[in-house]
């Protein structure tokens, strides 16, 4: 008969192994796409046929792909800017003010990502074509702000929750008007989350294909181009684009994390003050 501890230990190892497989399942398609993007064989199958960079060469000389990349960048930057600004406004309102219908306001702000993209696409297409915007780049931009705004709002709201309520009051107390307080206190406090929200919303826009496919008309973005390739036949170009986009997204995210990581390092330094002679460090002081 096995002891309880022994059983726990085995359970633990089983859990770790299982978790490993889960991560394998999640990462396998990403890894496979990376590997096949360098595989000489047109068809993605084993055994591998040898190393080539032809697919990358072919992809990035394809005028349609180049155009799509330019368009995606042109859309995602204003989308990120607008969603971050609007997301900040919404997050701050939720943080600072009490008003009637506040929960409805929150619902309206946060709901879009839960609506299936196909339905959003159809709704946007029919609505925007009524005001003669469907088929324009504007249509993609507008829809992507709707989808990305909630992500920005959520991230900035989380940061605001960490703000000592007395911080704004202190600013008013020092004769800063509410507008000056917003500019000199609240925005600097949220800086890292604003940068992170900008990067994440840019990534959301760069990755969104379904709504863009409905409303973009001939103005294909990168993921829409990928969808068109996918509708065609087997195409290693998809792997090349996928790998390129993945690498740049991860780079962006790493930069974003670096921003918040820097904040963490600063805070860690604050926990062990350089001048302990001054006396006890209070947790009550400014543990932000």
């Amino acid at each position: 008969m096995m002891s309880g501890n022994g059983m726990l230990k085995i359970g633990r190892w089983f859990g770790w192994a299982y978790t490993g497989y889960t991560f394998l399942f999640i990462l396998a398609p990403i890894a496979a796409s990376l590997v096949f993007s360098f595989n000489a064989d047109r068809f993605p199958s084993l055994p591998l046929k040898g190393f080539t960079t032809d697919w990358y060469g072919g992809t990035f000389t394809d005028p349609l792909v180049i155009e799509a990349f330019q368009r995606s960048v042109m859309v995602s930057i204003p989308v990120a800017l607008l969603s971050t600004i609007l997301g900040f406004c919404a997050a701050y309102c939720d943080f600072r003010f009490e008003f009637r219908g506040k929960s409805l306001f929150g619902l309206l702000m946060l709901l879009p990502p839960t609506i299936p993209a196909v339905i959003m696409g159809l709704g946007m297409l029919s609505y925007l074509s009524r005001i003669n915007l469907a088929g324009e780049v504007w249509a993609v931009l507008i829809s992507h702000v709707v989808i990305a705004l909630p992500f920005a709002m959520a991230m900035i709201r989380l940061r605001l929750a960490q703000m000592d309520a007395a911080l704004e009051e202190a600013s008013w107390n020092l004769r800063a008007s509410p507008a000056q307080t917003l500019w000199h206190v609240v925005l600097p406090f949220c800086k890292q989350s604003l940068v992170a929200a900008f990067l994440i919303t840019a990534a959301v826009s760069f990755d969104e294909f379904a709504v863009a496919w409905f409303v973009s008309g001939l103005n294909e973005t990168v993921p829409v181009r990928v969808l068109v390739f996918l509708q065609g036949q087997v195409s290693p170009v998809i792997n090349a684009i996928g790998t390129a986009v993945f690498t740049s997204s991860i780079l962006l995210v790493a930069i974003g994390m670096g921003f918040s990581g820097m904040g963490k390092a600063k805070r860690a330094a604050a926990d062990s003050p350089a001048q302990p002679a001054g006396g006890a460090v209070t947790n009550n002081g400014l543990s932000l």
Binding site: I26, L27, A32, P44, V226, L230, N239, G242, S249
Partner: peptide
């Protein structure tokens, strides 16, 4: 991490 890779590319894979 997967949120930053195209779902389309993963499905193709």
């Amino acid at each position: 991490v997967p949120f930053f890779t195209s779902y389309l590319v993963r499905v193709y894979s």
